[in-house]
Amino acid sequence: MNDSPKKNEAVRRLVLGFVACCVSLLLLDLIVHRHLSFAEGLLPVEGWFGFYAVYGFVSPYALIVIGSIPLRKLIMRSEEYYDG
């Protein structure tokens, strides 16, 4: 990613803008009146501030962490595995 300083700058700006979007979306949680998916409050967590944001962040993070270390060891083989 570090091809040129100019590009690096562009990436930095993009990321910053993106983070700003994330933050503002999170803040929207305070303003918007949320309807819960579950009737009768089966899952109160759902209504907490930033639940979706946290869940959205953690899921792929966990996925990649689990996927990258144990899973790779477990099932990843060289490309010629079946040809041999």
Binding site: V15, F18, V19, C21, C22, L25, L26, L28, D29, G50, Y52, A53, V54, Y55, G56, F57, V58, S59, P60, Y61, I64
Partner: peptide
């Protein structure tokens, strides 16, 4: 929110 934070995790 879900989408953006998932992307954020990736970033």
């Amino acid at each position: 929110q879900l989408v953006f934070f998932a992307v954020l995790a990736f970033v």
